[in-house]
Deep mutational scan, measured.
Amino acid sequence: TDVTFHVNGRNLHLKGADEELLRRIEELIRRGADIEELEKAVKEWEK
């Protein structure tokens, strides 16, 4: 799945995201995470 999140005026584009990653990103956004936290979560998922 390709999806782009718009967070605090910045874009986080995910290519090939699975349901697990999407749920994790949505949860972080609900908690008020900043873009750096979201990018870190994506990097951890990519490993």
Rank of each mutant, 00 (worst) to 15 (best):
T1Q: 13
T1V: 15
T1D: 08
T1Y: 15
D2H: 05
D2A: 03
D2T: 08
D2K: 04
V3S: 03
T4C: 13
T4M: 06
T4G: 02
T4Y: 06
T4R: 03
F5C: 06
F5Q: 01
H6A: 05
H6F: 06
V7R: 01
V7I: 10
V7F: 05
N8R: 04
N8G: 08
N8M: 04
G9R: 00
G9H: 03
G9I: 03
R10L: 14
R10I: 15
R10S: 15
N11E: 15
N11G: 04
N11P: 15
L12E: 00
L12F: 15
L12A: 00
L12H: 01
L12D: 00
H13L: 09
H13N: 07
H13Q: 07
H13R: 05
L14E: 00
L14R: 00
L14K: 00
K15G: 03
K15S: 07
K15T: 09
K15I: 10
K15P: 04
G16F: 07
A17F: 06
A17H: 05
D18G: 13
D18V: 05
E19K: 14
E20W: 11
E20F: 13
E20P: 09
E20S: 12
L21M: 07
L21H: 02
L22C: 05
L22Y: 04
R23N: 10
R23Y: 10
R24I: 12
R24N: 09
R24S: 10
I25G: 00
I25R: 00
I25F: 04
E26P: 02
E27H: 10
E27Q: 09
L28S: 04
L28F: 05
L28M: 14
L28K: 06
I29C: 04
I29V: 06
R30S: 12
R31F: 10
R31Y: 14
R31D: 10
G32L: 04
A33Y: 13
A33L: 08
D34T: 12
D34G: 10
D34N: 09
D34A: 07
I35N: 02
I35E: 01
I35L: 08
I35F: 15
I35M: 13
E37F: 09
E37W: 06
L38A: 03
L38Q: 00
L38C: 13
L38N: 00
L38Y: 02
E39D: 05
E39A: 06
E39H: 07
E39Q: 08
A41L: 10
A41Q: 09
V42L: 07
V42Y: 04
V42S: 03
V42C: 03
V42R: 03
V42T: 04
V42I: 10
E44L: 13
E44H: 11
E44A: 11
W45F: 11
W45H: 11
W45I: 04
W45Y: 14
W45Q: 05
W45T: 04
E46D: 12
K47F: 13
